[in-house]
Design a protein around this nucleic acid. Structure first.
Lengths: 161, 161
DNA sequence: GTGAGTGCAAAACGTTTGCATGAGC
DNA sequence: GCTCATGCAAACGTTTTGCACTCAC
């Protein structure tokens, strides 16, 4: 307990932190490694819960500060879920969007949004100077679709267990 | 001061509230009318500030409760700004998206997002069952673009006023 | 050695809730 | 008159901040 396995992706991020002139501290390494452990998106609270059990010496404020740092370096991205909560996802490419599983949180990136034509039309019609856009797609991943079928059967079988 | 002008749009919303079986109270009327006063999006805090000066008897909790009610009736929609704050916009049509001015908050709805092809591709590639999507476009409206030009000139002219 | 970074606790923030009172139907 | 809705205040969860200490450079 308490041993944080260092991943290569984590080391890569630590390198970028160092390259940007920030110090390589143990707390930052913990936050980075545990953030990478999450398959999909995660909230600050999720991450802090994990940290409390795996590396209890790291404080809550440090989690928020490190998440902010990573977000400002575009290594993480803040996303919004349907219910209004915000979460973070690890960020790979420059301009991209997310396909998010509402059930398990699995997040898949995609790049080409084919929106250029729409944005040009909008700009022409409204005289807005368009600065950016934000697209998120919600659904259910293959695994959760299958699980849900099993779950229904299961709940019938062991009702009021 | 303290006089809430009743708009026809406001009366229309009040009618829908009544039709849905909710009571037509003075507080709800105040929230609806002052929400309609906002040209673009507004936060709960924005609205409560306005209410504190125009109708100070209405409590904070009522503002939140009424915003929730209007959102659940799809008369308002909760949107997310780039910085992570949520705001509300008055909602006209069924499926639509928003073009938002980053400077003044002016919000323009548009309906056709031409995303069907993209969503089909995504579904095919990932085996996700796609439930919905969310698109917001950010930019600067014509008026704010012009204002910004003046503002630059202005600040040069009366620097350190 | 120095200052950026930290942990802790308290504060701030936005939002929700419990409850006695009041207004709409 | 009955109930829903309200105002108030307190509680809540999340995020930020102030401060003394410490660790990476």
């Amino acid at each position: 307990m308490g041993t944080i396995v260092k991943t290569s992706a984590g080391e890569e991020i630590m390198q970028k932190i160092s390259d940007s002139g920030y110090k390589l501290t143990e707390s930052r390494r913990v936050v980075v490694e545990l953030a990478l452990k999450h398959e999909g998106h995660f909230s600050a609270a999720d991450l802090y819960e994990t940290i409390k059990s795996e590396a209890p010496s790291v404080g809550r404020a440090t989690v928020f500060r490190t998440l902010d740092l990573l977000t400002s370096m575009q290594l993480l991205e803040k996303i919004h879920l349907g219910d209004g909560c915000h979460s973070y996802v690890v960020c790979q490419s420059r301009h991209h969007h997310h396909l998010i599983c509402n059930t398990c949180g699995l997040t898949i990136d995609f790049e080409n949004c084919h929106l250029n034509e729409l944005l040009q039309d909008l700009s022409r019609l409204t005289n807005f100077s368009i600065k950016g856009h934000w697209l998120e797609v919600f659904g259910q991943c293959e695994r959760c679709q299958n699980k849900e079928q099993f779950a229904v059967v299961g709940s019938i079988m062991k009702k009021d267990s």
